Simulated assay, not measured.
Amino acid sequence: MKIVVIGGTGLVGSQVVRNLTDHGHEAVAAAPQTGVNTLTGEGLPEVLEGAQVVVDLSNSPSFAEEDVTSFFRTSTTNLLEAEAAAGVGHHVILSIVGTDRIDSGYMRAKVVQEDLVKASGAGWSIVRSTQFFEFLSSIADSGTVDGVAHVAPVRFQPIASSDVARFVARTAAGTPLNGTIEIAGPDVVGFDEIVREHLAAKGDPREVRADAEATYFGARLQDKDLVPHGEALLGEVGYDQWRAAQA
């Protein structure tokens, strides 16, 4: 089966391509550096020729609400139109656990993307994931003021990007869900606690302060915003295993 992975050269995308290839599929990594641009439509007809599935892992270079909303609206619309013309029967996107309850511009833009996919009239699957272990350092950086990292003391269930890629690849190789699944890591932890542990493991001397006013994608958090509500598929890799693999 030919499966085109938009954003297939990135952190998750490259692993999705590898997973699909290992299972005998023709997985094509599509990105601006390979001549495929979803914002302009460049290269889409060519790369989608003969494809049965498209996995969209693209992301906006800017997280400002107007920019990211425009990105997802334009990119998704161009993709869906090109897929309809090419006869693609399954569109898969990676979204975020909490998208519909975290009040931030980025999350509202992801809802726009999800709604476009749901309304497309073709087969679709949405995989909502919790945050990746790989972004713990950047989370600390974004919350750092005067050398102190401010992180909300809420529940958190991070996941390894390798597990995300495995779930996305499995979804792409299956029949359309015409629905949404949620995925998360195996363990629920304190958000501030794991950021503190992560910085300590890296030898980063910053203090991590539990701060109920700290924001995430520009939004204040409720205790359950970053964990799945209801049933979720759980990854196999916990933080300690992931950290050991990085070393």
Rank of each mutant, 00 (worst) to 15 (best):
A214Y: 04
S14K: 13
I126H: 02
P205G: 07
A210C: 07
T21M: 05
G238V: 06
P61R: 12
R101Q: 11
A119I: 01
A64F: 04
I126W: 03
L234D: 02
Q241R: 15
A119Q: 13
F135I: 15
F167L: 09
Q52A: 15
V145E: 10
V227C: 07
V111G: 06
V55L: 04
G10A: 10
A86S: 14
I126N: 07
A245W: 02
P186A: 06
A212I: 10
D211R: 08
V36G: 07
H229E: 13
L221R: 05
H229F: 00
H150A: 12
L11W: 00
T34Y: 06
V28H: 05
D163I: 07
E26V: 07
F132T: 06
E49C: 08
L116I: 07
Q222S: 15
E236H: 11
L80Y: 03
R128H: 01
T38F: 03
S138L: 15
Q157P: 06
V92N: 09
A119D: 13
L57F: 03
F191Q: 11
L79G: 02
V12T: 15
G121E: 05
D225K: 12
F156M: 08
A152W: 02
P186M: 07
T21Q: 12
S162P: 01
D223K: 03
V145N: 03
G235H: 05
L177D: 02
T99A: 15
R220C: 08
Q15F: 01
R101C: 03
L79A: 04
V154P: 02
S60D: 02
E213G: 10
Q157A: 12
V92F: 04
G203D: 08
E213M: 12
G8W: 03
H90T: 08
A64W: 01
L79P: 01
T99G: 12
D211Q: 06
S60G: 09
P176Y: 01
R196G: 13
Q222T: 13
T171G: 10
A31D: 12
E81I: 09
E213Y: 02
A51S: 12
D67C: 08
A152N: 14
A82T: 06
V237E: 13
S62R: 13
E26N: 14
V112W: 01
D67W: 01
A201I: 09
F217S: 15
H229Y: 00
Q131W: 09
V88D: 12
P186C: 07
R108A: 14
A109V: 06
V47T: 11
E46N: 05
A85V: 06
A165G: 02
V88F: 08
D223Y: 00
N59P: 00
I183D: 04
H90K: 04
P228D: 02
M107T: 08
A201S: 15
A201E: 13
D67K: 13
T9R: 14
G105F: 00
D146K: 09
D22I: 00
